[in-house]
Design a protein around this nucleic acid. Structure first.
Length: 420
DNA sequence: TCTGGGGTCCTAGGACCC
DNA sequence: TCTGGGGTCCTAGGACCC
């Protein structure tokens, strides 16, 4: 048996923890650059703010409902996530953090426990210790636990905990009848309409569809999803965090950029982040990909998009070496006369440090030691304390964050003062 | 003229997730 | 005027091997 524990409207709830005036008020959180809505409180959902909608399309709605708007504050959300996960981990010997705000928990061997009661205890403790509201879904497979969590969230009769495995079959069937396929984990906006063509409209029909037909038409992923709905486990709990397979750092710019030197400054910054991530995973890379493009949305503007693979002369996680390669790449794909909106760098293959071939003529220890020092200083003094000169030169690419809340939990001066 | 069968590896693109 | 960022997995097709 598995539980899926998921924070309700996570980013909005984080904002509310430190500003009680936000309780009962519609709240939305925006993507980087204040572009799209990526989190909505229940009040905002009820008012009709769609997920991922560009914010300019709902400006009126936001205004007329007096909604509170926040820029993404990942320093805050990341720290709150860490806290919530550590509380949840107290309830199970094996957990798998699935995303920033949700976690699978193994409940095997707990059949003697009243699991609905147990779910309520999880909710109560996470709320008391972090201030975050969660819902708990319990089922015999990951897909069923996700489905149970959806019911726990959307249907008040469950009071935040839904245990599908203890439910009479007729009740389960009725709930699944009432669940469109698009709401199921793994069925997205392309697959749902195609399923409909076959007369498969809800979770129950998907569960009961012949596996061979599903596999042939949609591939193994949909077939597995169907089996999981029937209680056959196809996706295992991964209690050991899997090492990342690639690293991507990219940002849209706060404003359009036209000059190579501005793009280079942004790229240098992304390279630094990427190299930091690389070192944090004890990995090396010997090639990278740089990509750049103009607006994808404005049909009246000349478009340009390009990317390039660059070999790095040696396996490294030294930001200076990676930066040289990335700069050369950008210079070769940069075309003047365009208004660029985004640049990014990808490290598509990560080589664990221990597995790397030694360099016969390189003395890499000096560079490695410098990078360790840089990481230590930036950890202690704050990101960007030590930086590539090229990354510090320009700031025109920096993203818009017009409504950023304080970093309540990770920055001394941002601590909440209880009494002024 | 007539041109097999089985396999691997790589890449690009699609679909999905949060 | 204004549209995020970071991932994973699967598949199809091409190149190549014997």
């Amino acid at each position: 048996l598995l539980a899926l524990v998921d924070v309700n409207n996570f980013y909005c709830s984080c904002e509310r923890v430190f500003d009680p005036r936000l309780q009962g008020v519609p709240v939305v959180v925006l993507s980087n650059n204040d572009g799209c809505v990526i989190a909505r409180s229940n009040e905002a959902k009820a008012a009709g703010v769609a997920m991922a909608v560009p914010v300019f399309k709902v400006r009126e709605l936001i205004h007329s409902h007096g909604m509170k708007v926040f820029s993404s504050n990942y320093a805050l959300y990341g720290d709150m996530s860490r806290r919530a996960m550590s509380v949840i981990a107290q309830f199970s010997p094996n957990t798998e953090q699935y995303s920033i705000d949700e976690c699978f928990a193994d409940l095997e061997g707990m059949s003697h426990v009243d699991l609905r009661q147990y779910g309520q205890e999880i909710r109560a403790r996470v709320l008391q210790w972090t201030g975050l509201p969660v819902c708990v879904g319990i089922g015999s497979t990951k897909t069923l636990a996700k489905l149970a969590n959806l019911f726990a969230k959307k249907r008040p009769e469950f009071s935040g905990v839904c245990h599908l495995a203890s439910m009479p079959q007729v009740r389960l069937d009725a709930l699944m009848d009432d669940t469109p396929t698009g709401a199921i984990w793994g069925i997205g906006q392309k697959t749902a309409p195609k399923l409909k063509e076959l007369g498969i409209n809800n979770a129950r029909q998907l569960r009961d569809a012949p596996a061979s037909q599903l596999c042939e038409r949609f591939g193994v992923v949909v077939e597995r999803t169907s089996r999981e709905l029937g209680g056959v486990s196809c996706f295992d709990l991964e209690d050991q965090p899997q090492p990342r397979k690639q690293i991507v750092v990219s940002r849209s710019f706060g404003e359009r950029l036209t000059k190579l030197e501005d793009l280079l400054a942004a790229l240098m910054n992304h390279i630094e982040r990427a190299a930091e991530k690389l070192r944090a995973q004890d990995c090396l890379a010997d090639h990278l990909q740089v990509f750049v493009h103009t607006s994808l949305f404005n049909p009246n503007e000349p478009r340009y998009a390009n990317s390039i693979n660059v070999r790095v002369p040696t396996l490294t996680n030294d930001c200076r070496v990676l930066a040289d390669a990335a700069c050369a790449g950008l210079r070769s794909i940069f075309r003047p006369g365009f208004r660029y909106t985004k640049i990014g760098v990808m490290l598509p293959e990560l080589v664990p440090q221990g597995m790397a071939q030694g360099q016969l003529f390189e003395d890499s220890e000096q560079g490695a030691s410098l990078m360790r020092t840089v990481d230590a200083i930036n950890l202690r003094m704050g990101r960007g304390s030590v930086s590539l000169a090229g990354a510090m030169a320009k700031t025109g690419w920096k993203m818009k964050q017009g409504n950023l809340s304080p970093r309540y939990t990770t920055r001394w001066v941002d601590l909440v003062s209880v009494r002024a």
